[in-house]
C-alpha cells in the first residue's frame, strides 16, 4: 500500500500538485487567486480521495458519504464504520497476530477487562475490536494491545507508520512480549519506541486507579517498562512494554472461568493483573490526572471565594 502523501505531493508533475509550483530552476509563478485555487483544490482533492479510497479498498466498507456543503472548499466526508463507532464510544483494541489461538486469548482477555472496568469504574467501554495492522488505523482507540510475541510477520513500513502516528497523537500501545521466549526485535523494527525504564511506584501508571508496585499478567516475570520522559501529550508514555502475558491472565472461557492459571501467584496475581489492566485504561483516558492531583488539592486549599 502506498503512503497517502506520495501520490498527492511528492511528484511535482502530478496533477494534484497543481497548486504548488515545483521548486527548482524555474522561477516561481505568482500564486493563483484564492478562489481559483480553492475550486481547483477541491476538485483535485475530491478526485484524489475517491481514487485512493477505491485503490486502497477502503471504500468497500461502510461509507456514509455526505455531500459536500455547497459553496465551500471542504471535500465530502467519508468515515469508516469502525472509526465512527470507535469515536462514539471508546473501546479497547488488539492487534491480530495471525495465530487464531493467540487472537482468541486477546479477544476474551480484553472483553473480560472491559467488563471488569464497567463493574468497578465509570469507564463504560464497548466490546473490544480486532485490528488488522496492515489494514486498520489504530488512531481512535485509547489502548491498543499487541501480543507481539504471537505475531507471525513484522509490520510493513505503512503499518509501522500508522502505529507511530498513533503513539504520537496520544495513543497508548501496550506491547506484550508474552513469556519473553521469542526474540521480537525484528517485529518491533520500524516503530518509534522511546527510551524506556521500568515503571516505579511513583509513576502515574502505578496510581492511575489502583496503587500498584507490580504489573503481573499470567506471568510475573518483570515490571512493565514505560517511556523515560514524555513531555508531549500530558507526559503520558506512548508505549508500555512487558513480558507478562497480560491477556493470558484476563482471558476467560465461555463459562467465565479463567483460561489459564496465573503463575506463580495464582488468583491473587490475577486480581493484580486486572488492576494493572484498569490502571492502563485509566492512564490512557485520563492521562497524568492522578499525577497532578496533589498539586490541584494544594491550589484548592488556597482558594477563597470571590467577594
Amino acid at each position: 500500500m502506498l503512503p497517502l502523501s506520495l501520490p498527492l505531493c511528492q511528484s511535482p508533475h502530478h496533477a494534484a500538485c497543481a497548486g504548488h509550483p515545483p521548486a527548482g530552476p524555474r522561477t516561481r509563478s505568482p500564486r493563483p487567486r484564492n478562489a481559483v485555487r480553492t475550486a481547483a483544490g477541491t476538485v483535485l482533492r475530491t478526485l484524489a480521495a475517491g481514487l485512493l479510497a477505491c485503490a486502497l479498498g477502503l471504500g468497500a466498507a461502510h461509507h456514509p458519504a455526505l455531500a459536500a456543503d455547497p459553496g465551500t472548499g471542504a471535500p465530502p466526508l467519508s468515515v469508516s464504520e469502525k472509526d465512527r463507532e470507535a469515536a462514539l464510544q471508546p473501546r479497547l483494541a488488539y492487534v491480530l497476530s495471525g495465530s487464531a489461538s493467540a487472537d482468541h486469548v486477546s479477544e476474551t482477555g480484553l472483553t473480560r477487562l472491559t467488563d471488569v472496568l464497567a463493574l468497578r469504574t465509570s469507564a463504560k467501554m464497548a466490546p473490544p475490536v480486532a485490528l488488522d495492522p496492515e489494514r486498520d488505523d489504530p488512531l481512535l482507540f485509547p489502548v491498543v494491545y499487541w501480543p507481539v510475541s504471537a505475531a507471525i510477520a513484522p509490520l510493513s513500513p505503512e503499518a509501522a507508520g500508522r502505529f507511530n502516528r498513533y503513539m504520537k497523537a496520544g495513543g497508548l500501545l501496550v506491547i506484550d512480549l508474552g513469556d519473553g521466549s521469542r526474540p521480537t526485535d525484528d517485529l518491533l523494527a520500524g516503530l518509534d519506541i522511546p527510551p524506556l525504564k521500568p515503571m516505579d511506584p511513583t509513576h502515574v501508571l502505578a496510581r492511575s486507579f489502583y496503587l500498584l508496585s507490580r504489573t503481573p499478567g499470567r506471568l510475573d516475570t518483570a515490571v512493565a517498562w514505560v517511556a523515560t520522559t514524555g513531555l508531549d501529550n500530558d507526559g503520558v508514555s506512548p508505549v508500555v512494554v512487558g513480558p507478562n502475558d497480560w491477556a493470558g491472565a484476563w482471558a476467560v472461557d465461555g463459562s467465565g472461568a479463567p483460561l489459564f492459571q496465573a503463575f506463580p501467584g495464582g488468583e491473587g496475581q490475577r486480581e493484580q493483573a486486572f488492576r494493572f489492566g484498569i490502571n492502563l485504561v485509566m492512564y490512557a483516558l485520563a492521562g497524568s490526572y492522578k499525577g497532578d492531583q496533589v498539586h490541584s488539592e494544594a491550589i484548592l486549599d488556597k482558594l477563597e471565594n470571590r467577594k
Binding site: 497517502l4 482533492r45 488512531l139
Partner: peptide, 11 residues
C-alpha cells in the same frame, strides 16, 4: 500513513 481515505496533506 494517513487515515481511512482522507487525502491527508492535500489542500
Amino acid at each position: 500513513p494517513g487515515s481511512s481515505g482522507a487525502p491527508a496533506g492535500a489542500g
